[in-house]
Amino acid sequence: MSKTLKPTRRKFIKAAVATAGVAAIAGSPFKSAFAAKFPERNINVIVPTREGGGADRNLRTFTSVWKNYLNVNFEPGYFPGASGRVAYEVYMGKREPDCYNLIFGNMGPELLNWVVKKPTFDLNAYLYFGQVDTDPGCVFVGAKSKFKTIDDIVAAGKKRKLNVGTSRMAHPASIGILALGEKTGAQFNLIPLSGGKNTVAGAVTGEMDFSVLTSGSVAAAGKAVRTVLIFDDKNKLGARLNNAPTMNDHFGTKLPPLLSARAFGIHRAAIDKYPDRFKVLQDTFFKVFKDPAFKMAYLKAKGDWEYVNPGGVKECEKYSKDIAEIGERYKSLLSGAPKKK
């Protein structure tokens, strides 16, 4: 890994120059007095996806309000490489664990990355502490598809193997459809199409029999698609997802919700070293959700307010554990059986 992947380091130094006085006495006995004033400078956030994408929009909306509680700005740095792996490697390897550096990830797919292939750092060296929203996976067909309901799909899947478009193999929605196959005996062949845009296209153009994806993106696709099943406890968007039933209701399964969950993560070392700073982050994080400005900004950015789902360390830990467990169950299918013929 190149040691050069740190475009925001200079911003750190820039901020340090701007607060030269602070820097000058950083090593002095007054240090603790200054530390109590966290944050003194802007907070860097590493984003594992592209600028302008869904996570970016979400981050901009959330931090546009959060910054008012911290009185500093957030400076995002985007590292979309290798399904987010690059971002995590940069975050863990190159960023100071000082609570001034956060990561804003999508817990579902990114935790599944680790199931498929472990990163170079210790997985316990970071944790998620602030879940912003959760977006359940769903099954959908193109508007012109001959399949009208999930039962049509299951019935057809028992006769022949159906091709299923998915954004990528290691994705909560992919797990959902594998679980459906296991439950019903229908045969599904997952075809990774690299990204939500292509996954919607796969279903709409009819190349795929149907597709699976996070439901927020499916709802945004409007009438070009029709949702037929949700991998959650309830269909929170109702008619916008064609009043599709949930997997657990319809098939009597007991699957945990298969969600993409956007959340802020932090170095564990930063929490150990600066518990006060971490507390400031946690407290202010939750204040954002109660601020009407956040709801306004979120709706303006065309977010589904129903999916806003504040969660702290505990909720994130539970989610991480669930997704890792279920990921392990389907690991061989997600990572490819070694050396098939």
């Binding site: 475009p7 200079r10 130094i13 820039k14 120059v17 701007a18 740095g77």
Partner: peptide, 14 residues
């Protein structure tokens, strides 16, 4: 563009 910043850019930012 997030090009590398150095002394000149910091100075200009100030």
């Amino acid at each position: 563009t997030r090009l590398p910043h150095g002394p000149f850019e910091w100075l200009m930012a100030l």
